[in-house]
């Protein structure tokens, strides 16, 4: 299934599961955003970070 086809299923189903309504324009925007972000999200999810020790409660004003 192509990415647009997947989005066509995922978006209405996801919104419906949360009880969120969206008109055609909003759905088009969401679909567009999904197409922009989803490849990167998949890449992010595939990144091997097992060696990255989590930073607990990081103080972002300072170096780790």
């Amino acid at each position: 299934m192509s990415a647009p086809d997947q989005a066509a299923n995922f978006i209405p189903a996801g919104l419906a599961s949360l009880g969120i309504e969206a008109d055609e324009v909003e759905l088009a925007v969401i679909s567009g955003a999904h197409q922009v972000f989803w490849p990167g999200i998949q890449q992010l999810l595939a990144l091997d970070t097992r060696d990255v020790e989590p930073e607990r409660n990081p103080d972002l004003s300072k170096a780790p």
């Binding site: 995922f10 919104l15 909003e26 925007v29 969401i30 955003a33 999904h34």
Partner: peptide, 12 residues
């Protein structure tokens, strides 16, 4: 409309 869509997309 752009931000209405983006706001809803955040939940997904």
């Amino acid at each position: 409309p752009l931000n209405r869509g983006v706001m809803k997309y955040r939940l997904l």
